[in-house]
Design a protein around this nucleic acid. Structure first.
Length: 269
DNA sequence: ATGGTAGCACGGCTA
């Protein structure tokens, strides 16, 4: 089965581009980020008329995640555990079952974290966006530990807002102090990888220069001034099933595109 | 360079 992740940056503006990509790529399942819509205002027919099932975890104006799937979505859960006061819609889970076995899927939109605010001793300022990002990643690590204990194939996909290595940015020096690339962010990401995950794209494409995001500003796409921040992490059960992983970079050149492009993986499932 | 562009929704935040 083909599974994918796509930060669509607003479902109301992305209808035609999303439909065109779903038709062309025909993923069996895709997690979507930044739907920027509530569950009630999401244009469900756009997805359902194409034969996909849809589960949303929306929020007015910002954030919001969803899963679309040709197979039924089972055991759907919404929200990242660990902080009852966190109202931002950034996490959704579901299970799909095939004749060859089941797959647990996470769709996530990890906080951006900018601007980075540090106190005099270099610690993130409490209540700031960077502190929120790091706290969110700590909660995510705890949730991943619980999911790993299920001992079943697991795919954790989405907009991580993390540039894992210098090779994943056209101009790494421009990102050194940014929340997407500073060492503390990358360490938190690596801690999660070290729980036993395989980063699907890097495993299959060791060469630098592959990106999933180009800013709308300053002609970033035309200059290929991109970063790789959308990732598919697979636990060992799922990594054993990995057959392919690609970025649909050409989507960025389409009509009225998102600033992100889809990334997908083929699993022998 | 404190700009630049885009989305949501109609003012200002988020990225």
């Amino acid at each position: 089965m083909k599974i994918a992740s796509f930060n669509i940056n607003g479902i109301k503006a992305r209808g035609p581009a999303l439909e065109a990509w779903l038709k062309a790529a025909s993923p069996d399942l895709a997690v979507l980020q930044e739907i920027k819509s509530t569950d009630e205002t999401f244009p469900r027919a756009l997805i359902e008329d194409m034969g996909y099932n849809l589960e949303t975890h929306g929020q007015k104006g910002f954030n919001g995640v969803a899963i679309v799937s040709k197979l039924p979505l089972e055991d759907v859960t919404r929200g990242l555990p660990g902080d009852d006061d966190d109202t931002q819609a950034r996490w959704i889970e579901a299970t799909v079952s095939t004749p060859k076995g089941a797959l647990r899927v996470v769709g996530l939109y990890l906080p951006n974290g900018n601007p980075v605010e540090l106190d005099a001793t270099g610690h993130p300022v409490t209540g700031g966006k960077y502190a929120y990002k790091l706290a969110w990643m700590a909660r995510m690590e705890a949730r991943l530990r619980a999911l790993l204990a299920l001992e079943m194939p697991l795919a954790v996909m989405g907009d991580y807002n993390i540039i894992p290595q210098a090779e994943d940015a056209a101009r790494p020096d421009a990102w050194r102090e940014d929340a997407l690339f500073r060492l503390q962010s990358r360490k938190a990401f690596r801690r999660m990888l070290n729980l036993g995950f395989t980063e699907a794209f890097r495993t299959r494409h060791p060469a630098p220069g592959h990106y999933t995001f180009w800013d709308y500003q300053a002609g970033a796409y035309q200059k290929n001034d991109g970063i790789r921040i959308d990732h598919i992490l697979l636990n060992a059960y799922a990594a054993d099933l990995l057959r392919d992983c690609q970025i649909d970079a050409e989507v960025r050149a389409g009509e009225k595109p998102s600033d992100h492009v889809p990334i997908w993986a083929e699993l022998a499932l």
